[in-house]
Amino acid sequence: MLLNILLFSVLIICLITDLKSRKIYNKVIFPSLLLALLLNVILHGWSGLTGSLLGFAAGLGILLIPYLMGGMGAGDVKLLALIGAIKGASFVFATAILMGVIGGLIGLGIILFRKGFLQRMKSVFYTICGMKYGMKLRDAVGNEGLKKTYPYGVAIAGGAFAAFFLNGVNFL
């Protein structure tokens, strides 16, 4: 119960700050991490600490490579690691799968509803048709389209909420 309250509190705070300022603050993550470790020890003993540390490592490992490649912010990585520290490795794996689905849907929505969608689709069509005849046409997607980002903490929080309400790992 206490761990669930901590999870929901952190997710709501991080969701709001990520939407508002595109940041997930360390002053939320680090105290919550210490509280998660402490609560897991109090509630479950040393096995709770082990499970919490394994969940932390799993959450960190899942987003570490995208972060190192520049596709993810450090706050997103720390948030997923914190989710693992609160609820454990199996929960963070379920969260990661759902996070990927939700993040993909958000990205697709951004592509579909961003200004100039019809022009981009027409350009893609002409490029594909031109390739059939060996023609080299200009790029269908401009560089400005590749630089668009969105707050991925929304997808992480959505994945964690979905994993919680789907009973974590029952769908794996």
Rank of each mutant, 00 (worst) to 15 (best):
V92L: 05
W46M: 12
M121Q: 05
L64H: 03
F91T: 07
G130F: 02
L112R: 09
Y67D: 02
G109R: 09
L79R: 03
L43N: 14
M72G: 04
G116V: 06
L105W: 08
T127H: 08
L49D: 01
G145D: 14
G84I: 10
A89V: 13
L98E: 07
K147V: 13
G103M: 07
V92S: 03
L64D: 04
K87Y: 01
L98D: 04
Y133Q: 12
D76N: 08
G142S: 08
A89G: 02
D139S: 14
T50W: 09
Y152N: 06
R138Q: 13
Y150L: 15
L43P: 00
I102S: 12
G48T: 14
I102N: 09
F117R: 14
D76K: 01
Y152H: 13
K147D: 12
G48N: 08
N40V: 06
F125A: 14
Y133S: 13
K136E: 09
K132E: 01
I128S: 10
I65Y: 08
G48A: 10
Y152Q: 09
Y126S: 14
K122P: 00
A81C: 01
T95S: 13
I42A: 14
S47F: 06
G59D: 03
A94F: 05
L79H: 03
G73S: 08
L63C: 06
I128M: 14
L43M: 13
G145N: 15
F113P: 08
G104W: 10
D139Q: 13
G75D: 02
I42M: 14
G59K: 04
R138L: 08
V77E: 01
L63I: 11
L79E: 02
I65M: 12
G61T: 10
